[in-house]
C-alpha cells in the first residue's frame, strides 16, 4: 500500500521532537479526522536552520511530516512557503489515493509555522 520511501520515513522518521525555544510553531488537523501535526521552526536570517515535528496520525501522516522537515531545512522562508502538499507526496513517490486528502497536511503545518514566525517578527 505504501511506497518504500513512505515506509522508510515512517519507520525512521527524521527530525522528530520539539525545538526548545522555537521561533515559529504551526499546528494543523484535529483528532476527529485522525491527524494532528505540529511543526517547530528555528529561523535565522530568513533561513530555516532547524525543523522538528510531532504527529498523531497514520503511516502517511508521519511520513509526510518527516519528509517536509527534510525538504524545509536550509530553505529560505519564501522557498518554504511555495512547498506544496503535492510536492511532499511526490518526494515520497506518492501516497495511496485514500490518504491524499486526509493525511497530506505537512506542508500546511510548515506554512502555519512560518506564518507564526512572521507574525511574531513583524
Amino acid at each position: 500500500m505504501y511506497t518504500e520511501k513512505v515506509m522508510d520515513h515512517f519507520s525512521n522518521p527524521r527530525n522528530v521532537g520539539e525545538i526548545e525555544n522555537a521561533n515559529g510553531v504551526g499546528e494543523v488537523g484535529n483528532a476527529s479526522c485522525g491527524d494532528i501535526m505540529k511543526i517547530f521552526l528555528k529561523v535565522e536570517d530568513n533561513i530555516i536552520k532547524d525543523v522538528k515535528f510531532k504527529t498523531f496520525g497514520c503511516g502517511a501522516a508521519i511520513a509526510t511530516s518527516s519528509m517536509v522537515t527534510e525538504l524545509a531545512i536550509g530553505k529560505t522562508l519564501e522557498e518554504a512557503l511555495v512547498l506544496t502538499n503535492q510536492a511532499v507526496a511526490e518526494a515520497l513517490d506518492g501516497l495511496p489515493p485514500a490518504k491524499m486528502h486526509c493525511s497530506n497536511l505537512a506542508a500546511d503545518a510548515l506554512h502555519e509555522a512560518i506564518k507564526d514566525y512572521q507574525a511574531k517578527n513583524s
Binding site: 485522525g34 496520525g57 497514520c58
Partner: peptide, 11 residues
C-alpha cells in the same frame, strides 16, 4: 492513548 491505530499496526 495518544497514538493513532494505523501507525501502531505498521510498527
Amino acid at each position: 492513548n495518544f497514538i493513532e491505530g494505523e501507525s501502531l499496526l505498521l510498527f
